[in-house]
Design a protein around this nucleic acid. Structure first.
Lengths: 106, 106
DNA sequence: TATATATGCAACTTTTTAGTTGCGCAAATA
DNA sequence: TATTTGCGCAACTAAAAAGTTGCATATATA
């Protein structure tokens, strides 16, 4: 199945992996040590993240360092953009409400 | 089960619902008409979105208008913030690379 | 070259999720 | 008051996802 980034970040373990490697590239083994699960389970999460290109492998001998792909993460940001206007409006309305309450107190 | 916003937005139908009601509040029936699925299926998606407070109900007689809760969507934005620095760095590096290539062409 | 290590893939089990049908309740309307 | 309409909840089914064990492959090292 073709993975999409929304499905990829819906899993807490995968989010944790992303947070870790955003700081520093890690091998699958290094990741598995951080979580209470088998290496193979982590490996499956890596596969999901790799398929949707949120991470990129760098082969160094028999080790594979996975890097965070910031560019792909921006797709979320783009999706979120459609709602930004909404929340700015809603907060402006809140401001107005607060101003009104303030006025009434006088 | 306690829903979280990441799981909530991982479903395409739920993302479509959010996009719709960000523009205008809708009743479950109105939403169901937009999608090729039963009203009950939509109702379950509404439940998920409501439980994690991405939408808010407004009761009008026997109808319920669901509103988009922009404030909750910002949690997503906050989570994304931890990666912003990463992608700025990665893009700066890309800029440098492009500059280097440009230099070499001279 | 034999062995240890790092990793991915396949098969299987368990859990979760998406969707369905059927039902009950409350508000609107004839 | 009887009926229709809007909605949520429960039980069930089907599909997908998370995790396990076992195995194969490639690189490093004794």
């Amino acid at each position: 199945m073709k993975q999409d980034i929304f499905q990829a970040i819906s899993d807490p373990t995968r989010r944790a992996i992303l947070t870790l490697i955003a700081i520093q590239a890690l091998t699958p083994n290094a990741m598995a040590e951080k979580f209470d699960m088998t290496r193979q389970a982590v490996s499956k999460h890596i596969k999901v993240l790799h398929e949707c290109e949120l991470i990129k492998p760098e082969h160094r001998g028999r080790e594979i360092y996975y890097h965070f792909n910031a560019k792909k993460m921006q797709e979320f940001d783009n999706w979120l953009a459609q709602f930004r206007q909404s929340w700015e409006i809603q907060f402006n309305q809140l401001d107005e409400l607060l101003s009104t309450i303030k006025e009434q107190k006088r």
